[in-house]
Write a protein that binds this DNA or RNA. Structure first.
Lengths: 153, 153
DNA sequence: TTGAGACCTGAAGTAAGGTTGAGATCAATA
DNA sequence: TATTGATCTCAACCTTACTTCAGGTCTCAA
């Protein structure tokens, strides 16, 4: 029984193993640890040992990075989990739903940019004050006083 | 006549004017010049003076940056224009069509990521080897020997 | 003419996300 | 046991895209 319990804890992973299996460099593991995104304990000889859940944490980090979430924000999200635990299925559902929202906003804003570009490709209107490409914030068209980022060429 | 010709050349713009009208800081103008993206001549007192087309160049730079094109690549594209000229309507058509293509690819890859995320949000499958989110390159599913980036947790 | 504000240069700083190197120690195999 | 490969720490460096600073000069309106 105690043997099984010990097996449940699992064999600790060395930095090299984690690097190979997660696809990130050992230096990146150090870096993530410094930033508080992952944790390790030490062997008797002061070398890092990781529990297996570090693989899941790194997986979450990598997916979030692909989505475009900065490390600091990923770290904040992970830090908000109770007991500093690694996200379980439920946590992942919350996290990913949140990040999906961010991702979708990025897609929408890029799509809008593309559509504006479509409207401008042929017209050479880049030089004209009203070009929406040049006025991302849509903050003109009232021609009273006030900030005027882009005057006519 | 010579007076009109002189007027055609136009009054040179000071750094401050360009900054105000283009919406980028003077320090950014220095920076772009160092990188070869814009050019200036000097007043008798060694201060920069810009011809009006710098406004168009900066506009092009800003749009390209929103699309996600790195400055170095923007610089390369601008440098390929004959005579180092500022993009005219035809040049802009070519450039923007090219960049639109890049933008579209980025949108597509983010959209694909979003769809994969949709498929994974509820399932907690992040821990499973076959998860497509964790295997962006689709390079497994043949389980022979060979590189295996991500082993099971 | 003079003073305020704009400009000049070069070096250094910032932020994100790491990588690289030096010099020393650990761990596991022959 | 010896040695090779893996790790250790910490500082320095890298890239992108700029900003900030220090100390000095120009420009132009009053």
């Amino acid at each position: 029984m105690s043997k099984i319990a010990a097996a449940d804890i699992g064999k600790a992973l060395t930095p090299g193993e984690v690097a190979r299996r997660s696809g990130v460099a050992v230096s990146a593991l150090h870096f993530y640890e410094k930033k508080g995104l992952i944790h390790s304990h030490r062997s008797s000889g002061n070398q890092r040992r990781y529990s297996r859940d570090v693989l899941r944490r790194v997986a979450v980090i990598k997916v979030a990075q692909r989505i475009g979430i900065p490390l600091a924000e990923i770290g904040r999200a992970l830090a908000e989990l109770p007991d500093g635990r690694t996200p379980n299925a439920h946590d992942w559902k919350r996290l990913s739903a949140h990040w999906r929202h961010d991702l979708n906003e990025r897609i929408q804003s890029l799509t809008q940019l593309r559509d504006q570009l479509d409207g401008c490709i042929g017209c050479g209107c880049l030089s004209i004050n009203a070009c929406r490409l040049r006025n991302p914030l849509d903050e003109l068209s009232e021609d009273g006083p006030g900030p005027r980022l882009l005057e006519p060429d």
